[in-house]
Design a protein around this nucleic acid. Structure first.
Lengths: 317, 317
DNA sequence: TTGAAAGCGCTAACAT
DNA sequence: ATGTTAGCGCTTTCAA
């Protein structure tokens, strides 16, 4: 591998001058610049990034942390990576699995391998996590109020409440809810919306369940629906992929969706349009975008503006 | 940030001795080890990875290259990253987009940021790509015969032929094929299977189409099917997500699947089980696994064994 | 405009 | 068993 030292030896010009033309900083005479450029070409010189990283104390790499794979994760990663690469950052994907491994991954911030971190799903307490913020910026789309962690969470309350009203108007007086097993802020917001709605419309029936895990959740919920002698005629489900599973299971048992049971997902992921069921766009693409923008701004002391978007209902077509 | 130098200053022990206890190489007396360990804890010492990388000329990072996002990519990345992390490697995801950017990404091998590279979809010629192999091992699951590139492609011919026979036995005498727009070896293999089959069973009707892009491909194909006055009663589609789109579109037009049209995907991805259609397991999980194993073996001069698995038909349940 | 020299944080050969 | 030293490849003062 050609190094800057090799070029110096070959051209008889000092390392520092060569560094100047490579990086484009500082004055170099046209004459020498040409000699160096030629040598670079001839010797196929590519600067060693790791050496640069050591000097600059940056890797231009951001970690994307998630506990485990779910189908939506592909779409999250996609959005995040695309915007990151636009600004010259690479993305490392980590499946944290358990809280110990998550800490281990956060150590990469400390050990200077990662400039910053986006946490799609956290496993340790935010207090613990935020103690890493002094080593590099941390962003998440989960709902947190913490001085050193950027969160661009979307409040699910308004849109959820709106949909309940809409369903009510359309005559759905019995609605089932499947909520995330992760009792985060958004789950709370949904529960609150259900409670407030129930209070205002005491005649409507709202039932809800939490499900653990992601695999088979939709399936299990569907089984329960099938066994129910008076099942809800509309279901609101916390994520599209679980909704898809739910729908698939009902259809396997010859229940017609949406005629016998209207199913509404959340996320506006690809599967919703593929399977043609209504969903809620909670703007995750936007959240990934803005999460990155925050990290970028912190890292580079810039003020790129955030993009704004409102959650909205997506009808099936 | 605490460095090894800080520890040396604090404990009065030399950097090398400290390095020894940190890395676990070499002899250190119990007495000194304890002092160092205590100091490490107290000062919250985490070794700087970048400095290590510079010294060792390794980053323990592997690049995963794909032209663009498709739903299956999430599942590929997942399999690859999980196995990589088991062996202590991080994975960087790159969307190469165009051939120039792909070359740029391959330069990361040259610039020592990446130890190795897995190419899920290539854009440049294999000849061009293989010229990077001297900087780090390269693996792919695409079909290539190249001395410096590992390929664990799966030959689609036998399984494809077998399924054609099976369909024939079940009375499907008119079968439609949707093939990948990427005219790679596997597409060739499928065409060959269709041709050979047609020759042996001249009465059966086999029609095929190529579709460009991935978005809307299933949709377009379905539109075509709908317009066809005598459409095939069975469809074989080159990837599950396109099959899903195809099915969704047919159903939107009240065509019953599989009763009116049997649709078989390829990949055995999550969506196939979710939407409950038959598919072909072409063992991509296995291919990701073995792709990594190759890279690992090359990098570490080991001989971890590959795992073997045969493509097989997955019935819907 | 250029070069010499120091240093980013770590490891390993060598010497003791 | 431990310390000294050199060096990975690069950038950036500082001095000329």
């Amino acid at each position: 591998m050609t190094t800057i030292y090799d070029l110096a030896k070959k051209t008889g010009i000092s390392k520092s001058t060569i560094s100047r033309v490579v990086s484009g900083n500082g004055y170099v005479s046209e004459e020498k610049r040409k000699i160096i450029l030629d040598a670079m070409h001839e010797m196929n010189y590519i600067p060693n990034q790791v050496a640069k990283n050591l000097r600059s104390k940056r890797t231009n790499t951001i970690g994307f942390l998630i506990n485990d794979y779910m189908p939506l994760v592909g779409e999250l990663i996609n959005s995040f990576t695309q915007i990151a690469s636009k600004y010259g950052y690479s993305v490392n994907l980590y499946f944290t699995k358990n809280s110990k491994k998550e800490l281990h991954t956060l150590d990469l911030l400390t050990s200077k391998r990662l400039d910053a971190v986006f946490i799609a799903l956290r496993l340790n307490s935010w207090d613990t996590i935020s103690s890493y913020a002094k080593f590099g910026p941390i962003a998440t789309w989960q709902r947190v109020e913490h001085p050193h962690i950027y969160s661009n969470y979307i409040d699910h309350y308004p849109i959820y409440y709106k949909i309940l009203e809409r369903l009510n108007n359309e005559g759905y007086d019995h609605v089932g809810h499947i909520l995330s097993p992760i009792r985060n802020g958004n789950t709370q917001a949904r529960i609150k919306a259900i409670e407030d709605f129930s209070q205002k419309y005491p005649d409507s029936i709202q039932t809800f369940d939490f499900y653990d895990g992601q695999n088979g959740v939709g399936h299990d919920a569907a089984e329960k629906w099938l066994k129910n002698s008076n099942p809800p005629k509309a279901m609101l489900i916390f994520t599209d992929y679980v909704a898809a599973d739910f729908i698939a299971t009902l259809r396997r048992h010859h229940v017609r969706v949406p005629e016998d049971c209207l199913v509404i997902g959340s996320d506006n992921s690809e599967i919703a349009s593929l399977m043609n069921f209504p969903t809620i766009d909670l703007c995750f693409r936007n959240q990934m975008h803005n999460g990155f923008i925050y990290l970028y701004n912190q890292l580079n002391d810039t003020h790129l503006p955030y993009e704004h978007e409102e959650p909205h209902f997506i009808e099936s077509y």
